[in-house]
């Protein structure tokens, strides 16, 4: 079954800005789906329409087969939203916030208190359940919004930049949590600026740019289209290397750093062999950019140039 089905969705704001120009999008049940795009591409508008926070201009949206116009309440019961910006009362406690939220989905208070303990414990917030939310750290506030969205056990969870502004440790623990949640059957749609995050978590991906879907495929298929990668090599000495070494374009960054672009037809063994022949010792190596980042830039840049 499709968790989300979008057809010809369009949105023109009152000021004339055409944020969405008729997009189609399908997300299968159980998927971990990435919706990527540069700022102002239409990601938040799309999520806003799905979550009933933005009025659409045209098109249709179905959540688990429930149409947002004809079957709004049922569609909403399937959906959990973790927005990009903090949107809870800073004067309420985490416990009050999540229990009230459960009430908005029809969960009786007694049951909500039990569920709140479970969810807040899972997200390591139970100890903070009775403090005012404004005193929580940025990472805790993000986790609180996830806890709130999970109270009614949504079948589709949408996270809009869930790890923005949180440190690496918190981000990694959130990834683990989201992976576990997805493994238990929750369909997840994620928008993020951290492309490494999308690559690590998501199975399918759509890239949106200037209100249009420019790519919609599996993460594997998308990454397979990457025809060249740039690597950064830390070397002991450059030993007077040429600008092009047997077809490998080299760029000298400093005395100990070299950038090399490798096309799909060549491989790293060939490069290492050539460097060894010239007495260049490679100490370490890394991708210059995340692989998805390179694709993302090429896709959105192509579109801009068109």
């Amino acid at each position: 079954m499709q968790a989300l089905r979008i057809r010809q969705l369009a949105k023109t704001y009152g000021n004339g800005v055409e944020a969405l120009k008729g997009i189609d999008l399908d997300v299968e049940e159980g998927d971990f789906f990435a919706l990527l795009g540069p700022n102002g591409a239409g990601k938040s508008t799309t999520i806003g329409i799905i979550a009933s926070l933005v009025n659409k201009s045209a098109g249709s949206v179905q959540v688990f087969g429930h149409d947002l116009v004809e079957d709004l309440a049922l569609a909403k019961t399937c959906l959990g939203l973790v927005p990009q910006e903090f949107n809870f009362s800073v004067f309420e406690t985490p416990l009050q916030i999540v229990v009230n939220q459960a009430g908005f989905y029809g969960m009786p208070r007694r049951e909500a208190l039990v569920r709140a303990e479970e969810v807040l414990n899972t997200l390591s917030l139970w100890d903070k359940r009775n403090v005012q939310s404004r005193t929580l750290s940025g990472g805790m506030k993000r986790r609180l919004m996830i806890a709130r969205a999970l109270m009614h056990r949504p079948r589709l969870l949408i996270l809009d930049e869930p790890t923005a502004g949180v440190d690496i440790e918190v981000r990694r623990s959130m990834w683990e949590f989201l992976r576990g949640l997805n493994a238990q059957g929750t369909t997840i749609i994620l928008t993020t600026h951290y492309l490494e995050e999308a690559e690590s978590l998501c199975r399918n991906i759509a890239i949106i740019d200037k209100g249009l879907i420019v790519e919609n495929t599996s993460m594997k298929a998308l990454l397979a289209t990457l025809d060249r990668e740039t690597f950064v090599l830390d070397v002991r000495h450059l030993n007077g290397l040429p600008e092009i070494l047997d077809g490998f374009p080299l760029r000298r960054v400093d005395e100990h750093t070299l950038e090399v672009e490798i096309s799909r037809e060549r491989n790293l063994n060939q490069l290492f062999g050539l460097l060894s022949e010239r007495g260049v010792e490679v100490m370490s190596m890394r991708n210059k950019a995340n692989r998805l980042e390179e694709l993302f830039l090429s896709l959105t840049e192509k579109k801009s140039a068109a």
Partner: peptide, 18 residues
């Protein structure tokens, strides 16, 4: 107005409450 200003009115708008 506080609910609008702090945006937690969205808790209600997103939910199935009539």
């Amino acid at each position: 107005f506080s609910a609008k200003f702090q945006r937690f009115v969205e808790e209600l708008l997103v939910s199935p409450v009539s």
